[in-house]
Nucleic acid binder design. Structure first.
Lengths: 336, 336
DNA sequence: TCGTGATGATAAAAGGTTTTATCAGATTCC
DNA sequence: GGAATCTGATAAAACCTTTTATCATCACGA
């Protein structure tokens, strides 16, 4: 660790201390060129002793690889971005790559500014992330000379992107309820113009089959309330299970059901989507929900960038990563 | 913007295109040395035409300033970190500084790894952030040769840190309720071993005076429920206002009050703390709460680092930034 | 006409590392 | 024994900027 007022040690210092030339020192440390085993060991030992750590700037200048990548996000709130960023940096730190985080706040000017700064820094690649799937990434991204990976965001055709497997997640939820003997499953979800909403709804229909019914609204608890009020005040058979488009809606649903004295999970089972723990842990009863494994998405995006920067080819197209069902108590069954 | 397969333009290209030497080009672009006004303009024009952007690595190598800073956080969830990071980068991007985000996940090994990577990159400064105020930052930080600023985290003595003004925030809440005619205000809050909890409780006591009562618990909704059940089932006078330690507790409180048919805000006013919008916007009625202005904290931390890297001196010690009361409907009054 | 100063441009060094080409010395082969 | 081969090490170039020191050129005053 570098202490106050002590100049950083350079490879020059190592060479001098080991009584060897700069190039030999470099070769010894990196295992390149031809070096005598004995000198190699000596150089390495000396380097460790005096606490030499190579200057990444100088190294990057020559190799044209900065060993850093940029992460461009429009998420101000952090619910989606930070878990992904953690996954990205977790996977990259061991390979000596660091991550620049750039919050664009949905402002194109800011996005451009950050992008230029990243390029000036010679980043090895860029990961673009959006909170709304349908927000288009800046068009410049498609033309860059460096690899770009999209996480939770749709890139231009022929690019590499990672998404949660919304369809599989939805099936997970529906199958879980069916497995617990529920036969009248309703789907209350967000706005139909979200791609993810349409995918989940389609999977729900296919998995549940007959009598499928989807209610589109917005992402709020309020909409959950409203939907329940509507459904339970109209004539006809009532659902015995509800698959919600996200945890906020699920929370509204559970609260509304309690208000009209319908027991969860006894009378109606509820499943959410997101596993946003502030919500899903705090509903009464705690919510069984689908986790999108954001950290894993980040990890995979990081690995993809890593391969690309090494010049390896990565298959293009959308990769959808499995969701996981987190069983709590809103459906009864094993954990109920 | 750099297109595929096109080598980046260097200052060498600019010099050649402008028919001038490299040093003149540099001088003209940076306004250093002596240059004829006419040549200066020409060089600048040419540079813009061919899309020259200086290589930050090369620049940093010489100046020993990388124009990048590191942000070290132990927050995996992102609720606190990302707003701060957004503030930091917002303030720095205009000065050409970028931000490395390093999530340490509370793992000392990882923290060390990231720290070393940051130093190898010659970062100009480091911002350390913690979610729990009492988590100690790595000891190595205190010995670094580069400036360190603590945001939402307590550094070693004689260092620079930024916090929300918890006392002022608490007073804001209490005074608001008093101003609306409430006279029996109760404080339901988190664990007493959090410093922020003690500060807020103290300010509440001082501001409210007589009959102050603080109930310590944890940060959950459940605790809010439990506290209400206790208070309203015991004999004696009941509160007409409740100041909660965070929004989750407030939500539990509001739900519990509804369960026992006590009207909010008519019978009891409720104020939260955090302005965590997933919660505060969704309670019924929407929650009046104290916003800690995390983005502003980030901004200030960024500015402090900026000054320090320029060699300016910044007063050491803890700076507490004002909180803001967000008035919604859980207290009645103007917005009720 | 010759120094003096000012002006504007340039060559060269510096920053820390990697890499290519070169070199000296030892070893092998005919 | 001399040429060829191999080994281990090194000098120097390269990456791209900024900065320092140097160098022409011209105008001016003596």
């Amino acid at each position: 660790m570098v202490e106050k007022d002590i100049r950083r040690r350079t490879i020059h210092d190592v060479a001098q201390a080991a009584g060897v030339s700069i190039s030999t020192a470099s070769n010894a440390l990196n295992g390149t060129g031809r070096t005598n085993a004995e000198t190699r060991e000596r150089v390495k030992r000396v380097a460790k002793e005096i606490g030499f750590r190579p200057n990444t700037l100088a190294r990057g200048l020559l190799s044209k690889r900065s060993h850093a990548i940029g992460m461009l996000t429009n998420d101000t709130y952090g619910r989606l971005t930070l878990p992904m960023a953690a996954g990205v940096s977790e996977v990259l730190v061991d390979h000596g790559l660091s991550v620049f985080l750039c919050a664009t706040n949905n402002d194109p000017r800011l996005a451009r500014l950050h992008l230029e700064a990243l390029l000036d820094r010679q980043v090895d690649g860029i990961i673009f992330t959006a909170t709304r799937l349908d927000l288009k990434p800046p068009a410049e991204l498609a033309k860059l000379a460096i690899p770009v990976v999209y996480a939770f965001a749709e890139g231009p055709p022929e690019n590499i992107s990672f998404f949660p497997d919304d369809a599989q997640g939805a099936r997970l939820a529906v199958e879980h309820m069916k497995g617990l003997g529920r036969s009248r499953i309703l789907h209350i979800t967000g706005p139909e113009d979200y791609l993810a909403v349409r995918i989940r709804a389609k999977a729900y229909r296919e998995s549940f089959g007959k009598d499928a019914e989807v209610l589109y609204g917005d992402w709020s608890e309020e909409w959950g309330h409203e939907a329940i009020d509507t459904v339970f005040s109209r004539p006809g058979e009532k659902p015995d299970a509800i698959f919600c488009g996200n945890d906020e809606i699920a929370r509204g649903v559970i609260d509304a059901l309690r208000d009209i004295d319908i027991a969860v999970p006894k009378d109606v089972a509820v499943v959410g989507f997101d596993n946003w723990e502030v919500i899903s842990r705090q509903t009464r009863p705690p919510l069984t929900t689908v986790d999108m494994e954001l950290k894993e998405i980040g990890r995979r995006a990081g690995l993809a960038i890593l391969s690309l920067t090494k010049g390896e080819t990565v298959p293009t197209g959308i990769t959808r990563l499995s969701c996981r069902l987190v069983v709590r108590q809103s459906c009864g069954g094993q954990a109920g």
